[in-house]
Design a protein around this nucleic acid. Structure first.
Lengths: 200, 200
DNA sequence: CCTACCGATCGGTAGG
DNA sequence: CCTACCGATCGGTAGG
């Protein structure tokens, strides 16, 4: 309660601490998963005591859910905005290529959060998983429409169903944080190569 | 020690218990990762006490390493054998398609072990990770040669480097346990579709 | 945001 | 393969 007496003044500091906790949690959740990430680890990285985390969050589950869902939502927002701002003249090939680039850029820009969303999903408790699943599904629905359109337009490999192509695409994309390192090659170049694999 | 007095007679039973423990561990490691999988959970599934696991294994790390490395090695063996038994007349397209099918079949046949190898890698302790990395690298070297050959033969999408194509292929393949369910479609059909995406 | 602490649970050991 | 147990560590609470 002491920290709340001058709430107005300390609000920016609290917000900063909240983000610092989430950043530290994202880094740890990404590399260790849910169970292996302890509140004491997170607190130590931020420079506070474990119990003090409860001044900012209600539970470990709240922290993990926030990190994981923000990660997925950032990618959703990036891809949605990119597709919306494409000129009307853009064909389906342009749309798919732009979506791939936006996805990869968002994945890399917030890589701790987005990777945490994937790595922690397996061993997170049910309430965290269920929330995460909803955010995932919302994002994946973008790709359902996009790949359906591409297949209907005849822009994809012959004999490959829309569903297989979409799952192949998401596999390629979501596996990339396992190996992509910044200096390796530009993300836009990588996006162009991925598009060349999926389209023709 | 009581269990060892008549060692000759009880050996098959011990071997069975050992495999039962590994099977239970694989199932749990796959769905929960390393840290969240407890020796008590494993023991309960097998119908023994947690302490009795130490009659069969020296540590939790030994169990996890065995599961994870057997999973990767099964895939390695399956793909290696398939490529070796291909007729001399088989072209590079046939070789890649056969390797994809062998990989997917092995992945699905021992899905608890192979998925455990991927899901537990993130939060396993260093000794377990390092051993797992060696097995992975040995397997991936098959794909380095295979995809290099395919690119050199001009059988792949133009403008896509051998490295990107290999990482895209492994991403597609290794992501499939996330969504593949047995009745969905035959694995050979899926392999043909994956090959159609990667080759032309 | 802190100190002090709790009940639960973990991997592992002793000894049979 | 069992009972009994240990030290360490966890998420979380009390109270300030």
């Amino acid at each position: 309660m002491a920290g709340r007496t001058n709430k107005k003044v300390s609000e920016p500091i609290e917000a900063k601490s909240r983000r610092e906790i989430l950043d530290a949690a994202a880094r740890l959740l990404r590399s260790q998963g849910y169970k292996a990430t302890t509140l004491r680890d997170i607190a130590e990285e931020v420079g506070i005591r474990a119990a003090s985390i409860y001044y900012h969050f209600e539970s470990k589950e709240e922290i993990a859910s926030t990190v994981m869902n923000e990660g997925v939502d950032w990618v959703f927002d990036a891809v949605t905005a990119t597709l919306q701002h494409l000129p009307a003249s853009a064909g389906i090939n342009d749309r798919v290529t732009a979506a791939i680039a936006a996805h990869l850029n968002a994945l890399h820009k917030h890589s701790d959060y987005t990777s945490a969303a994937m790595k922690s999903y397996a061993d997170a408790p049910d309430p965290v998983r269920q929330l995460a699943r909803e955010h995932r599904r919302r994002y994946e629905s973008i790709w359902v429409r996009l790949i359906d359109d591409a297949v209907a337009a005849g822009a994809t490999p012959p004999g490959v169903s829309s569903e297989t192509l979409r799952l192949a695409a998401l596999g390629m994309l979501n596996w990339s944080p396992e190996w992509y390192r910044a200096g390796r090659q530009s993300i836009d170049r990588l996006a162009a190569e991925f598009a060349a694999i999926l389209l023709r």
